[in-house]
Amino acid sequence: MLQHNSAPVIAIVDDHPIVIEGLKNLLTSETEFEIVSFTTGNDFLNYLKTNEADVVLLDVVLPDINGLELCRELRKKYPEITVLAISNQAERSIIVQMLQNGASGYLLKNASADELLDGIEKGLRGEEALSHEVKAILSRPATNDWNGIPTLTKREKEILRLISEGLSSTDIADKLFLSQLTVETHRRNIIQKFQTTNMFSVIKLAIEHKII
C-alpha cells in the first residue's frame, strides 16, 4: 500500500464523463479521498509516471486499451495499486478474467453507493470486493452462461482469429483483400452469433470453446 501524508488517492478510469461525475460526486460527499479521473487508459498510465494512486476504479471497455490488459499491466508495473473493475459487463468470463489479471474486485455500475464505498474500503484493506450481483453471477455454474457454440463460417473464423491477434479492421481488410465495411459487417455478425455485446467476450468464449 502506498503511504501518503494526505488522503488516499482514488483514480477513476472511464470513457463516460457522466459516470466519472457521478462517482466523483459520490466519493467527495462521502469520503476524504482525493479523486483524479481519466477517460483513457493511456492518460492514466502517463499520470502514474509521476504520481501515485491507491485505488483505481477501472472500466473494462475503454477507447484505447482493453481494460483486461490494462489491469494486467497495472499489476505488473504498480502492484501496490488496488484495481477495482467497475463495469456494465456482466459476463462471467469477463469477471473471471479480470480477477485472474489481478483485480481486487469487480462491481457492476448498477451497484449501490454503499456497495461501492464498501468495495473501496475492502480493496484498501487487501480484501476481495465483489458487488452482490457479481457474487451471484460467479456462484452460477459456468455452463449456464452460454447456450451452445455458434457456427461460424470459414471467413468469420479467419477474421475472429486475426481480431484475437490484435489486428484492427483496417489491418484485416488489407490482409484479406476485403473492404473495411465488409470486415465490420463480419465483426457485427460474429458478436450477434455469440449473443454478447462486445468482441472481448467473443474472444474469451471462442478461446474457452477452442473455436480459435
Rank of each mutant, 00 (worst) to 15 (best):
M1N: 12
G41Q: 05
N25A: 14
V96H: 00
I172A: 08
V60S: 11
D64M: 09
T185H: 12
E158Q: 13
V9L: 08
L138N: 08
A103E: 09
E115S: 14
S29F: 09
D43E: 14
P8T: 06
I190L: 15
D54W: 08
Y47M: 00
A206V: 01
H4Q: 12
R187W: 06
R72T: 11
I18K: 14
D64P: 02
A129H: 01
H4E: 12
I86P: 02
K154A: 12
L74G: 10
L84Y: 09
T153K: 04
H16W: 00
S112W: 06
D114L: 12
Y106K: 02
A90Q: 07
D114S: 12
K24T: 15
T31N: 01
K210P: 01
V60A: 13
V36A: 04
N51H: 14
T151A: 15
Y47G: 07
E91P: 04
Q195N: 13
I10P: 05
S104F: 10
E73Q: 11
L68S: 06
P63D: 04
G105S: 01
I163E: 09
V36M: 06
E80P: 01
R187M: 11
D15W: 04
L99N: 01
T151F: 13
I163Q: 14
L138A: 10
R155N: 11
Q89M: 13
